[in-house]
Amino acid sequence: MINYTLKQLYSFEAVVRLKSFTKASKELYITQPAVYMQIQQLIQNIGAELLSTKGKKVSPTHIGKKFYQTCLTVIAKLEQSKADIEQTLNPDSGHLEISVATTTNSFVSRVLAQFKQQYPDMTFHLEVTNRKLLLEKLSNHSSDLVVMGEPPADMSLITQPFMENPLIAIAHPDHPLLKNKKNSIKALSKETLITREQGSGTRITIERILGMKFNSEIEINSNEAIIEAVQAGLGIGFVSKHTVKLELENDIIKQLNIDKFPVMRHWHTVHSNKTELSPIAQRFKAFIIESGQKVFS
């Protein structure tokens, strides 16, 4: 009979997810030797190696991968049970784990501020990251709610669009293309184009809808850095209009008038269809869907 404790499950899940004993110990607020001891006891109880270590990199074995899925299921049910009890005792409290795309950070923060005013006893952790890590969050169910542009089509998710997200081209105020009333995609393709890293929602959208392939080696993994690069005259960038409202109003950058632009997309709330949202997460999802457009109009 295989026996294991909750401490062992939490330790193993953290080590596999973070690929490190050190990072797991910091997240769990226990020492690294304590994490290592929990894993060793778990291995002895199961009777099989669960981890493979090469240098500082830790990865699960074949059996470890199977057991990791068990850990995710058990931990998710435990956390859900804990949240349900807390919500029953105090329905206006609870904790939210929210992960958002870098391009959504400014308006999600504003929505959270308003939501917090209505529910002052609730707590939240907001992680701002790139698309790749958002997909990992959705895959391992480590976030209650994800806010992103284009949801992946190959995952079992519940998605809800809640506001328009116009994608525009921006340039330095002295850029020669600004003199034209309208610019063609062909003219744009001759310019130095600055974009997000491969795999980002912005890049995927432009390459698919406009049939454009980026003609430079300039890849930047944050909107703020793209805006700064455009301000410096490095090239033409592509960003959500919501993220450059102040810069446009103050003529720090200019919006280019180009065929097929702006490209209209939507922001979405996204979560796994296998996980039931806690009451506070349900309230926040409804809040951002109902008031998001009004807040940022």
Results as ranks from 00 to 15, higher is better:
residue 74 V to T: 11
residue 111 V to L: 15
residue 110 R to M: 11
residue 85 I to V: 02
residue 65 K to W: 09
residue 133 L to N: 09
residue 103 T to S: 12
residue 113 A to F: 13
residue 83 A to Y: 08
residue 71 C to A: 03
residue 96 L to R: 00
residue 128 V to F: 07
residue 70 T to G: 07
residue 104 T to S: 14
residue 63 I to R: 08
residue 83 A to S: 10
residue 110 R to V: 06
residue 68 Y to E: 13
residue 46 I to D: 12
residue 81 S to R: 12
residue 70 T to M: 14
residue 134 L to F: 07
residue 100 V to W: 04
residue 71 C to R: 01
residue 92 D to C: 00
residue 80 Q to D: 08
residue 43 I to P: 09
residue 131 R to G: 03
residue 100 V to P: 00
residue 124 F to H: 07
residue 81 S to A: 12
residue 135 L to M: 04
residue 101 A to F: 03
residue 51 L to K: 02
residue 43 I to W: 02
residue 127 E to A: 11
residue 124 F to N: 03
residue 117 Q to A: 15
residue 92 D to F: 01
residue 98 I to L: 10
residue 102 T to N: 07
residue 83 A to I: 03
residue 108 V to H: 08
residue 51 L to R: 06
residue 125 H to P: 00
residue 54 K to S: 14
residue 81 S to M: 12
residue 82 K to C: 01
residue 64 G to M: 03
residue 86 E to H: 09
residue 108 V to K: 10
residue 79 E to G: 02
residue 53 T to D: 03
residue 73 T to G: 05
residue 76 A to Y: 09
residue 56 K to P: 07
residue 69 Q to G: 06
residue 104 T to K: 11
residue 104 T to I: 14
residue 107 F to G: 05
residue 93 S to V: 00
residue 61 T to S: 05
residue 92 D to Y: 08
residue 82 K to V: 05
residue 96 L to K: 02
residue 80 Q to P: 10
residue 141 H to Q: 12
residue 106 S to Y: 15
residue 92 D to H: 03
residue 86 E to A: 05
residue 42 L to T: 02
residue 85 I to D: 10
residue 54 K to N: 12
residue 63 I to K: 14
residue 111 V to N: 14
residue 135 L to R: 01
residue 47 G to D: 11
residue 43 I to M: 09
residue 122 M to L: 13
residue 53 T to R: 12
residue 114 Q to L: 15
residue 72 L to S: 10
residue 79 E to M: 07
residue 109 S to P: 11
residue 43 I to D: 08
residue 67 F to Q: 02
residue 48 A to F: 13
residue 116 K to A: 15
residue 44 Q to A: 14
residue 64 G to C: 04
residue 106 S to G: 09
residue 83 A to Q: 05
residue 134 L to I: 14
residue 91 P to D: 02
residue 101 A to K: 04
residue 137 K to W: 00
residue 104 T to D: 15
residue 90 N to W: 07
residue 75 I to M: 06
residue 80 Q to S: 10
residue 42 L to P: 00
residue 128 V to S: 04
residue 50 L to V: 04
residue 126 L to Y: 09
residue 48 A to M: 13
residue 119 Y to P: 01
residue 130 N to R: 11
residue 111 V to M: 15
residue 108 V to Q: 08
residue 95 H to W: 01
residue 70 T to P: 00
residue 125 H to T: 10
residue 102 T to K: 14
residue 120 P to H: 10
residue 114 Q to A: 15
residue 97 E to I: 12
residue 110 R to K: 12
residue 119 Y to L: 10
residue 134 L to G: 14
residue 89 L to C: 00
residue 94 G to F: 11
residue 87 Q to V: 06
residue 106 S to Q: 13
residue 133 L to Q: 08
residue 118 Q to R: 09
residue 73 T to H: 11
residue 138 L to I: 01
residue 112 L to F: 07
residue 66 K to V: 09
residue 95 H to F: 06
residue 84 D to K: 03
residue 48 A to Y: 13
residue 121 D to N: 13
residue 134 L to M: 09
residue 137 K to D: 02
residue 92 D to G: 01
residue 97 E to K: 11
residue 140 N to V: 05
residue 119 Y to W: 03
residue 47 G to F: 01
residue 116 K to Y: 14
residue 117 Q to I: 01
residue 48 A to T: 15
residue 122 M to P: 01
residue 130 N to K: 12
residue 85 I to T: 02
residue 73 T to Y: 13
residue 93 S to T: 04
residue 54 K to Q: 15
residue 42 L to W: 07
residue 62 H to P: 09
residue 95 H to E: 03
